[in-house]
Write a protein that binds this DNA or RNA. Structure first.
Lengths: 247, 247
DNA sequence: TAATTTGAAAAAATCGATATTATTCCCGTA
DNA sequence: TACGGGAATAATATCGATTTTTTCAAATTA
């Protein structure tokens, strides 16, 4: 296989905006206008500031995000493939709509992919991976899910650690593609969580569920771990579904 | 859940360029410059005209694809999320590199996802789906893989029908997301197939393999169908791997 | 009244020019 | 000779203006 190497480019750089993750890593500083706009738009769509189905007018966005036409359009193009934005030729962009049908699909697909990824991780993961799982679980357990006790106020740090725990679980699956897909679905799911306008807590003990998953993983009990993980997602999903139907 | 409906947009339009598929559907005619550039760039990357790792200079592409800066950059942005192009802030775009490691991952991940999708299809598919599978298999069997008998000359029609057969197999899995992922991986795989500079035929009878898969599907034998599908992919993969190593 | 046409306004798409950043290559120095 | 500084060059990123297309509503017609 021939490869053009007259052009000298640094070969490794897996942390740019093409990664569905880490949207706000270098949002300020030397990042390009496109990256900035991408990160901010993405955050605003996930958080629900930009409403599902909403038309995204270039001129409007230009003013809000303080950038020119090109960076805005490029950012929107990037978001299109992440399924956060829809593009229609000659008719511009809009925030991807949501539906309970799509949420069902999302939940289902996540379970399929994460189960496979988890089983592979359990089969392949070495002791360093085990340690990372333990550490991620511990760190997650050290912060409260809600900033206030009697009603729910999202805790950003919990969100970060929660995602990190789930990423770590499947990080030994040895397929960056599968991990990327899981990541995409995770972020889609967060969007639904935000949009549901979650007020009440889930009554069940989420921390205990994480602990149980962690134990099963360390025991290399793939069947149990997969079962726990899937039911973990499903109960969260059921809870969200109720919220979605109320609203 | 609130939804802004002051803006009137046609709600359904699932066939635009955001679909990783059908890149050249309306490539001519009223399609936008961006869509045209996207389709042509995509085709040229898959076919190997644009070499893996190659720097993609905007000015150059502008001339080749006869479009302005913005459409080219937008098209490249779309291609980055498809993993056909890499983007590095402030350093432009290049064709996504290939590696035998990545090919391994690709093959593995495809098997995981397609197996799941096929099992779901077999579980959920109705008689209309069965008929579509039969039809797709028949149509595939009616065209030769190579235009010439004694050496390999790619037959575009075979490619189209082959893809359609595989898409149809999993079309009853009831997850557009999973199908989209499979589609992405399929196209990535085609790229590797093209790049390997395939000359000789695989000696095995690919048509027979398709027939066997079809039979197992109609018999609703999920285990057998999955086994056949995975080994179908793996043998193609092994064959490609040899080609890759030779080159 | 319903359907169609027309035209003004709005928005998207596109372009070419400019500003910004990276790369290259030359030259002086250790 | 190897190294590092610093223009000169090349390429990217960005902007605002222009062109094209769509949208909306009023006017016309059957």
């Amino acid at each position: 296989m021939k490869q053009e190497d007259t052009e000298t480019i640094v070969p490794e750089m897996d942390d740019d905006i093409s990664t569905p993750d880490a949207p706000d890593r270098e949002t300020v500083g030397r990042a390009s206008m496109t990256s900035r706009a991408y990160a901010r738009l993405r955050a605003d769509i996930i958080s629900g500031v930009l409403v599902p189905g909403q038309k995204l007018k270039i001129e409007e966005l230009r003013q809000i995000y303080d950038a020119g036409t090109s960076p805005i359009r490029e950012a929107l193009s990037l978001l299109t493939s992440d399924h956060f934005v829809e593009r229609i030729d000659q008719r511009g962009f809009r925030v991807a709509p949501v539906s309970s049908k799509e949420f069902d699909e999302l939940l289902k697909t996540r379970c399929w992919l994460e189960e496979r990824a988890l089983r592979e991780s359990i089969a392949n993961g070495d002791s360093s991976w085990e340690e990372q799982v333990v550490l991620a679980a511990y760190r997650l357990s050290r912060v409260p899910r809600s900033q206030v006790d009697d009603h729910f106020v999202a805790n950003a740090e919990w969100e970060v650690r929660h995602k990190h725990f789930h990423v770590t679980l499947i990080s030994a699956c040895d397929s960056s593609m599968l991990m990327k897909f899981c990541d995409q679905l995770y972020d889609q799911n967060i969007r639904y969580r935000q949009l549901s306008g979650i007020q009440a807590y889930p009554s069940r003990d989420v921390t205990a569920e994480h602990g149980a998953i962690c134990d099963a993983v360390l025991a290399r009990d793939a069947d149990l771990a997969a079962k726990l993980l899937v039911s973990h997602y499903n109960s969260t999903g059921d809870f969200l579904k109720d919220q979605l139907e109320d609203a």
